[in-house]
């Protein structure tokens, strides 16, 4: 089996460099044949895109997409400096 560290690095590089994603802030962990993706993106389409790119970069492994949608709330109280 390929060393998990190299698999994780390859997936992370694919997520950053693939034109469908260009996501630099996704954490990738590989445990055995399981891949875990974590992070935050702005919409469901981007979430799915990340999963697609990760699957292609790690054929044969099971990808768990734990990426969350970024919830942006209204501005809070102002800070006085």
């Amino acid at each position: 089996m390929e060393t998990p560290q190299y698999v994780a690095a390859r997936i992370q590089r694919a997520l950053a460099e693939d034109e469908r994603t260009n996501e630099l802030g996704i954490r990738v962990d590989v445990r055995g044949d399981q891949v875990f993706l974590r992070g935050q993106v702005s919409c469901e389409e981007r979430r799915h895109g990340i999963e697609d790119v990760a699957r292609e970069a790690a054929p044969g492994l099971t990808v768990h997409n734990e990426v969350q949608l970024l919830e942006v709330s209204d501005p809070g109280e102002e800070e006085h400096l």
Partner: peptide
Amino acid sequence: IRVRNVALPVIGHSYVVYCLD
């Protein structure tokens, strides 16, 4: 000098407001 990281995932708000006295 005060420094503020206002990356959207950090602030979690659509924007933050700083009041300079």
